[in-house]
């Protein structure tokens, strides 16, 4: 039950994109196509889960025992960057189409603040390794969900008569704002 609440909290109540406003760059950038958004969501979730494990180990077995927590940001970014490199090589081989579709946003997972934010939040919190992984899965699911929802809405609006200055990223930000309003309903749930 405790683990389930951690998952719900990370995925809905404190959704990384719509409540914490982290990871906005890929949220707006990769949400134009439904299929791509699923790929991006999966890739980000994967990096989140592995990164949470590795950064938890680094935090509790290297940084904290030696009293060098000030190296946290550097260490975490290095970890995340190498993980993204791994995902990139894998996708390049396994699914070249998705690799091309994600384009610049794939290496940019490195600088996706949702992932670094998650690692830092976990380092500040008191979760054990298992709870951290559940939290990361929740965060990834929440990120993917927000991304997929926005992509589906944007695809539906492809032929809508949106005023010219508002087409593209502008309308995506407005939709995101309304989504964030709707997510306020989950406030206080966990």
């Amino acid at each position: 039950m405790e683990l389930f609440l951690i998952f719900l909290g990370a995925a809905f109540v404190n959704n990384f994109v719509l409540v914490r406003f982290l990871g906005i760059c890929p949220f707006i950038g990769v949400s134009t196509k439904f299929e791509t958004s699923i790929g991006m969501g999966l890739a980000t979730t994967f990096v989140m889960v592995v990164a949470s494990t590795v950064t938890w180990l680094i935090q509790h077995f290297i940084l904290a025992p030696f009293g060098i927590e000030y190296l946290q940001t550097v260490a975490f970014i290095l970890t995340i960057a190498s993980l993204v490199q791994l995902v990139e090589m894998f996708l390049h081989k396994a699914s070249p189409a998705l690799y091309r579709a994600l384009g610049i946003y794939l290496p940019l997972i490195t600088t996706n603040c949702a992932i670094l934010g998650m690692a830092v939040l976990l380092a500040q919190g008191s979760y054990n390794l298992g709870e951290s992984i559940i939290f990361a899965i929740g965060a990834g699911v929440g990120f993917s969900l927000a991304l997929i929802i926005l992509a589906a809405i944007r695809e539906e609006l492809e032929f809508a008569d949106i005023p010219k200055p508002l087409r593209g990223a502008a309308i995506a930000f407005i939709i995101a704002g309304i989504l964030a309003l709707a997510f306020k309903g989950f406030e206080g749930l966990v």
């Binding site: 695809e155 309304i178 709707a182 997510f183 309903g185 989950f186 406030e187």
Partner: peptide, 24 residues
């Protein structure tokens, strides 16, 4: 929302949340 969240009423949120899932 009614039983566990902070807000006493959740009709607005429940419909808005389902609106956003409608394309899916």
């Amino acid at each position: 929302i009614r039983l566990w969240a902070k807000a006493p009423e959740g009709v607005m949120y429940s419909i808005l949340l389902m609106n956003m899932l409608t394309p899916l």
